[in-house]
């Protein structure tokens, strides 16, 4: 297939996944800020870091207060990762390859775009913040469901899947890292109640609170949350699950192309093996933040290799 078509599909599903992630990230930040002392800027600042937007944000704003961060991450078109930028980007990608999509997929994207106008600046307030977050999550679910259920299993599908899961791996690593950036106030203890609520907020943001209790049957403890989101194969957002999908789709592409494979295949395989055979104790011992940063970097490199090999 044409590289341009593949590229549009890859970035289409990445944009939708990122849109979903930013909404979830804001949800965590909001929940954490409610728990913290009212003047704290900490949670909103951490959301910027986790969205990878810290530097460009502070080029435009002095303080990371709630209103400024919400605006920047939701609708500022100068921010390519804002929810609205992602949605517009996704729609442009979809429009460029309309013939490669089913009607259901197109309608999921176009419908989201048309409905998004209801959340304009005037009508948006902190009152309907959670309505908005839910709406964004629903649009992403609709898109993922539409393409999973209706698209032919051809290369088109593989490139959409690659986009979804590579972006999701990146996002899972980033959302876990929020906890590193939200420092506990000095009077609080690790393992104290605030610490607990922060971890719980992360679980909730990835729709995994119930799943946690199914898997661990006990109270929320940090190392288990981390294990669940990094190593557990049952958890569909875990890094391991994401990489399983990335690897599988790269393998299918290689098969389709008579064995033609590149650096992306090797790196994804290496990453997958690491996730499959790592132990959570070792990850904590070597430093969770370091592990996550390394994962984000490697995921970035794999993205670039896919770009070079298939999409250039």
């Amino acid at each position: 297939m044409l590289s341009r078509t593949a590229s549009n599909l890859f970035w289409l599903s990445r944009s939708i996944e990122r849109m979903d992630y930013v909404a979830r990230l804001l949800d965590v930040a909001q929940r954490m800020s409610v728990l913290a002392n009212p003047n704290s800027l900490n949670e909103w600042h951490s959301a910027l870091i986790a969205a990878g937007c810290e530097t460009p944000f502070f080029e435009l704003h002095e303080r990371s207060d709630e209103a400024a961060v919400l605006h920047y991450l939701i609708r500022d078109r100068r921010n390519p990762s804002s929810i609205m930028s992602c949605l517009v980007q996704a729609r442009n990608n979809a429009r460029a390859v309309r013939a490669a999509l089913t009607l259901d997929v197109w309608e999921a994207i176009n419908g989201a775009y048309l409905e998004s106008r209801e959340f304009d600046e005037e009508t948006f307030s902190s009152d309907n913040f959670s309505t908005f977050v839910d709406w964004v999550k629903r649009q992403a679910l609709l898109f993922n469901g539409a393409y999973s259920n209706t698209l032919l299993r051809t290369e088109n599908f593989n490139f959409l899947r690659l986009g979804t899961f590579l972006e999701r791996a990146d996002n899972t690593a980033r959302i876990l890292d929020v906890k590193y950036h939200v420092l506990l106030p000095s009077f609080e203890q690790v393992g104290g109640s605030l610490d607990y609520y922060q971890w719980a907020a992360i679980l909730r943001s990835v729709s995994a609170r119930r799943s946690y209790h199914v898997l661990y049957k006990g109270r929320v403890v940090p190392w288990q949350v981390v294990e669940m989101l990094i190593l557990r194969p049952e958890m569909p957002r875990s890094l391991r699950s994401c990489y399983e999908q990335v690897l599988e789709n790269l393998d299918v592409l290689a098969q389709r192309h008579g064995g033609r494979a590149g650096e992306a295949h090797r790196l994804a395989g290496e990453m997958h093996a690491r996730l499959r055979y790592s132990r959570i104790d070792d990850i904590f011992q070597r430093g969770l933040h370091e592990f996550l940063t390394d994962t984000i970097d490697r995921t970035g490199v794999i993205g670039e290799e896919i770009q070079k090999f298939y999409l250039g």
Binding site: M1, L2, S3, R4, A6, E155, F159, L253, H257, R260, Y310, L311, G312
Partner: peptide, 18 residues
Amino acid sequence: EGQDLVVQNGVVMMRTTE
């Protein structure tokens, strides 16, 4: 589209995933 095509040694090629 134009960006999908490239001329190499006088031959027109399209950029594909293969």
